[in-house]
Structures are given as C-alpha cells and as structure tokens.
Nucleic acid binder design. Structure first.
Lengths: 256, 256
DNA sequence: CACAGAAAGATTGACAGACAATTATTTCGG
DNA sequence: CCGAAATAATTGTCTGTCAATCTTTCTGTG
C-alpha cells in the first residue's frame, strides 16, 4: 500500500473545521505563512479529536497530510508540544497527548483563575457594546433546546469565550486561556461531561453575565470561578471513573 | 569584517549563566538535545538582558553564537516567540521583545493569580521538608545586608520560586509562572525596581511563608497576591515614568 | 518449540545547501 | 539634494544527507 493511499482519507484534516469566520481572513491581505496553517490545522485536528489521544504522529505522515516539508511540520509540532497537546518521546517520535485525570485537574485549576481573571477584567474594562454582545450570545445559549446537537452548542460556547477574551483587555490572559480551552476541547471530543449539565452551565453563566452587567468585578470573578469548579468536578468524576474501569478492563475502550 | 569576528565576542552567550546546579545535570545521562540547549541559551540571554530589547536576532548570527544549524535555531526562536520573549516581523526577522508598560501590566496580572495559586497549592500539598526548605531560603533572603550584589539576590529569589513551584504539585502552574518570571527578569535586567523595595519584599514574603507554615491556603493566596500587586505597582510606576521621559527625549536611553 | 541474539528496517535529530520572495541599502541620474 | 533603479541581505521553505536509536524480523541453538 502506498503512502499516498494510506493517508489519503486523512487529507481533509488539513482544512480547519470552523471556516465560518467570513470577515476575518478577508481582512488580512497577506496569507498566513505555511507554518501557521500547519500549526492551526494540527491544533484543530487534535482539539477536535480527529487525531485521537495516543496516536503516533509520524513526520512523514504529517508532511503528507498537510502538504508541507519536514522543517515546517517540525516547527509546528514543537509549538504544540509546548502547549501540551503533543508529547515527545526522544528518538521515538511524537504522540497526541493523553489527558490523565491528574493533568485535567491541573488544567482546571489554572483555567479557573484565568477565566475568573478574564471575567473580572471584562466587568471592569469592556465596552457597552461588548457587554450587549456577551448577553446576546448568552441568550442564544439559554434558548437552545436540549436536543440541539453538540457541535452547535460548542460553537456557541466558543463564541462566548471569544467575546469574553476580547473584552477583558488582556491579550496574555486571552492567549493562555485559549490554550487551556484547547486542551479541554480534547476532553469534550472524547464524549465527556456535557449531557445533563447544560442547565447548570446556563445558570452558572447567567451569574457571570449578570455580574458583568452590574459592573461587579468581584461578582464576575466569583461566579466564573464557581462555574469552572463545578465543571471540573463533573469532568474529573467521569475521567476518574473511566480510568478506574480501564485499570480493571484494559482495552475496554481503546484510544489510538 | 568577517562574520566570525563580528560575533566572536558574543560566543560566550551560548553557555547558560547559572551553571551552579551541580547534582542536576549529573543525573540525566542523556544529554539534552541540541534544540533544548539553544532554546535555554537563548532564553537566558534574553531574560538576563545580554540580548537587549529591540535587538535584531539574525538567523545567521544565532547559528554562529550557538553553533547550531538553522533548523534548530528556528525551532527555538518559534518557541520563544510563543513565550513572548521574541517578536517576529514577517520577512524582516525576529527581534528581542520590548516590554511596554501595558504588556508588563498584563504580565503582572497573570503572574498575580498564578503565583497565588502556587502558594495556595503549596500550603495545601507541600511536604514538611519542602516547607522547611522554603522557610530556610526565606531566612537566607531576610539575612542578606542591603549591600549584597543584585545577582546574589536574584539567585536567592530564583531558589525561592523553584521550591514554591515544585511544592505546589501542579506542573502546569509551574511552567506558566516560570514563563511569567522569565519575562519579568527581562525587566529587572534593565535595572528596575529592586533598590529600596527589598525590605518590603522581605516583609511580604514573610506573610506568605507564615501562612504556608500555618497550612492556611487562603492566607497564602492573599499574601501572595498582595506581594505581586505591590511589586507591580512599583515596577509599573517606574516603567511609565521611563516611557514618559522617552516620549519627550527620544534616544535618551537607547535600547538596541 | 522456545528463545537469545543479530541483522534489517524505520524514524528521529541534526546538518548543509539551494531557491524564490521580500526588504533594506546603495548607487546613479537628474 | 532628491528620487529611482540596481544591488545586497534576510527570511520562508524545500530537498537531500547522515548518524543514532528504536522496532521488528530473522536466525541459530538448546
């Protein structure tokens, strides 16, 4: 079997999953350099679960998939390694990171304070237009029925965070929290958390939105922190249960 | 003038400034891969100010200085760019990041919550031995006279943070806070803050250490947060003053 | 047949050289 | 002295090479 055949079906991975940002890429006249495309494509493929945890990412394979040279691919891989999405085994290669419950706990801890910081900053520094925008997206989220498909839900949440990160006026918080959320997406991609928690999520986010509208930074901080803590509790319970099961029945749900 | 001559005097940059960790590199039998060496060397050179803000970092020059090939150098540069120590200008090259007061404010904001999180985690999860170690380093810091040279002071502070980051039992917090501290070193390297603040620093850190010894996570959180806030206030005042002066007298203190 | 050890194959880590595209600098004509 | 063309320098990317290391397969022996 030829390499081209072997990876042909995976080629679609090269294009990002959410190309519904009409105005954005129109604006930047200069096309993104190759390494950015590979970087984003790889990030998306991992965060969305199309590259499963544990999967071996060969240089050659990545070159085929993204149509780039090894130098470019390797630069992208190094970046994603720094973000924690990929683990490198010396002289063996790179693998999609598997998220243990311990690591997930660490991530939730950091995400908690960063998200709280973002919400606090938003409450202090966002414009009225941004406040209205956040409220609008929240209403959108609160209106969806329980049968709405997961992808649509995730899209709305992503919009919510995009507005929050923009309005907090701290690009550093935005970038780091974005990393955390990417790692979290990896969790959601392996069918985690959401099912019955949606109403709780909506209620908790309402507290955040309301505190922000009252220009109450402390309230926004606390509400935000609480939201992440609860999400963490649910996710960690599921993750630990899964690990428990896998210890007793190795290979029951194989990942990569 | 030949390239070799041109950069000969800069060659010493390749070796890290703090090679006083005797037991550490003895342990790892496998030598760090080339790219790590370049990465660390570059990080140290920037954080310590030997590569000044605004300086143009040519590929060729970096290859000469670190004795590595372009691929390796470029991978390292990309990583440091993600950490914010380097800025890339498309088709022009990479420059040592200049820290504006606005960016510094962002960094201090993030550093505040991360350091608080680390202190809180330490208060909860550190071993007795680690607590004692932290106390010991603190005493060391409190004992130094005001005439102690800056390098020694920075070394002690670095030890303090090393113990704190290890004891908080969250490698993610450790890594991110480490990044923040690197950026901060860049500030200190341009002769900032410290002079008269040492007694205040010592007092504030004592509150942190005492809260930790009383196994009081909330106290450790608050004390830590307070410390960073005060340090930020001082540093930002100086930075803004400097920017003010430079607006009126451009070139008064040139940096690269 | 089982199994230790050797050979073959695949993959990484690193290097050097090449090339077009872009940007900076210098030269030269007016 | 000013502006435009020519020149040089630098980046972004690709290709090919090579040794070191890990995995797998093969092989000979008890």
């Amino acid at each position: 079997m030829e390499l081209s055949d072997k990876f042909a079906e995976a080629k679609f991975l090269a294009m990002p999953p959410d190309s519904n940002l009409p105005g954005d890429e129109m604006l930047r006249a200069a096309p993104q350099p190759m390494r950015r495309q590979v970087e984003e494509g790889l990030r998306n493929a991992i965060a969305s679960g199309r590259f499963a945890p544990g999967q071996h990412l060969t240089d050659r394979m990545l070159c085929e998939v993204f149509g780039a040279s090894r130098s470019v691919v390797r630069e992208a891989v190094r970046l994603l390694e720094a973000e924690g999405l990929i683990v490198l085994v010396p002289n063996r290669g790179q693998f999609v990171a598997y998220l243990s419950s311990a690591e997930a706990a660490h991530i939730y801890e950091v995400r908690g304070v960063l998200e709280a910081l973002a919400a606090e900053g938003f409450a202090i520094r966002a414009t009225d237009a941004e406040r209205a925008e956040l409220r609008q997206i929240y209403e959108h989220l609160a209106d969806v029925g329980p049968e709405t498909d997961r992808m649509a839900l995730l899209a709305i949440k992503r919009d919510f965070y995009a507005v929050l990160l923009r309005g907090c006026r701290n690009p550093l918080v935005a970038r780091m929290l974005d990393q955390m959320l990417n790692r979290n997406s990896q969790l959601r991609a392996t069918s985690l958390s959401d099912p019955a928690r949606l109403p709780h999520t909506i209620r908790e986010l309402r507290w955040v939105v309301e505190a922000i509208e009252h220009r109450d930074p402390e309230g926004a901080w606390e509400a935000s922190r609480l939201h992440v803590r609860r999400a963490a509790a649910v996710a960690l319970r599921i993750l630990r249960g899964r690990e428990e099961r896998e210890r007793e029945d190795p290979g029951g749900t194989q990942l990569g």
